[in-house]
Write a protein that binds this DNA or RNA. Structure first.
Lengths: 234, 234
DNA sequence: CCGATGTTTATTGCCTACAATTGAATATCG
DNA sequence: CGATATTCAATTGTAGGCAATAAACATCGG
């Protein structure tokens, strides 16, 4: 399948600017985030490297990078494993993500323009429309784009990077797809609250609205989790 | 100096549990954060690997990890360079750090105990004492321990990790030591405000107090920066 | 004297090979 | 038959070597 990658001209072009390690890293990250490689699954070095037509060296460098990003665990003399995020950790991440997203709201309240507000309202209308049709597969990507647009508009690249990193890690939560669950029309009202807060130009109000939106997602996540699992404690 | 590291028994013990890559990574991270390796400086693979008595393989894996952590930049066919954080990025980091630290305040307000408050007040008294003597070298580590104790007490390991990562990156800001500057007695009043907010048990108040503490550090940082540099804009 | 082009040299990117470790299958003993 | 010791295959950890790249230097023409 990937055997002759080395001789593929388009890939060679990529190698001009990006190293083999970088290519492997992106490719593996994609496999992990799409769920093709599932949490807990082991990554056999020989198998993967031959699959991509490289040696083990670059692959090992790529996995070290993924480890630092929190996408895999490396156990000495045992191998590389796709990270599985526990419920406890997922809840932790939700909180930190809420804080970072709240900051996005706070920053945006100060620099929001009519142009941005128009764009945001367009998003809201689009999501309302989709939600009415209960077409979940369409709703999710738009919802994602909406949040993406918000954090990106802050102009704070550090914030964007961190936020996306959290979203990625949540994809590794055991209950895959739970992250998306409970969304739709329920959360679009929260979205409107956020945009309204931005329009008011009130920093604290916007921060709180953004923060609480993620906190509510966390609560929905936990509910879905407890519905499937024995609630550990009273 | 480090030539016979391989034969040092204590280091071999470490290798039982931790890989050579891991040791190199920690060692390099230490060199970078202490400033022994300065921002912009290039890390010669042969030089470093012979210095530590290893081959280039594990070293390259270690640097990939450091790249993902944001401590070095790797340019293809050019080498790895200690990351230098621009003023713009430093200000960005301050904001995100403020958000995360604010979350720490919010979480702590809900689970603070008399025991923790006692410990915190002891920190405050100690810092007051040191600040009175204007002994900066003593103040800084205590200040660090205070903040460390705060974030750790939240029990949210994700938060702790992120917070420390931000503090580390700020060490790479061009104006080294600026991060520490402007502290002392000025900020200890803010520290008391934070602890008071915790004692009140008011979530939002604590969050805001924690958040603003870091924001004020950011402002002090920017002031010191502009005093040295041409203020870029009006 | 200065800029453009060719050459050298240091350094990185990648690969192959060997050593060390682990986990499991197998054998041995109570 | 069950538990423990032992061997063995699979896999990772590390080392060293060759090719490719880019920067530094020298050379040539204007």
């Amino acid at each position: 399948m990937y055997q002759q990658m080395k001789t593929d001209s388009s890939d060679l072009m990529v190698l001009r600017t990006s190293s083999l390690t970088g290519v492997l890293e992106r490719e593996l990250e994609h496999l992990i985030l799409t769920g093709e490689l599932k949490p807990g699954e082991r990554l056999n070095e020989i198998q993967i490297s031959t699959r991509f037509g490289t040696s083990r060296g670059p692959l090992r460098e790529a996995t070290r990078s993924l480890q630092a990003k929190g996408l895999v665990d490396i156990i000495r003399n045992r191998g590389v494993f796709v990270r599985s995020v526990s419920a406890k950790e997922a809840l932790e991440i939700y909180d930190v993500r809420a804080a970072v997203f709240g900051l996005a709201g706070r920053l945006l309240a100060d620099l929001v323009t009519d142009q941005i507000l128009t764009r945001l309202n367009a998003f809201l209308d689009q999501m309302d429309e989709i939600a009415a049709g209960k077409d979940f597969d369409q709703y999710y990507p738009v919802n994602l784009a909406f949040h993406d647009y918000l954090v990106t508009s802050t102009g704070n690249e550090t914030l964007v990077k961190e936020y996306k990193s959290f979203v990625n890690k949540l994809h590794l939560a055991r209950a895959r797809g739970l992250v998306q669950a409970g969304g739709l029309s329920v959360s679009n009202r929260e979205h409107r609250e956020m945009v309204d807060a931005l329009a008011s130009g009130n920093r604290e109000r916007a921060q709180e609205a953004f923060f609480r939106h993620v906190e509510r997602s966390k609560i929905r996540f936990r509910s879905t989790l407890e519905a499937l699992d024995p609630p550990v404690e009273s």
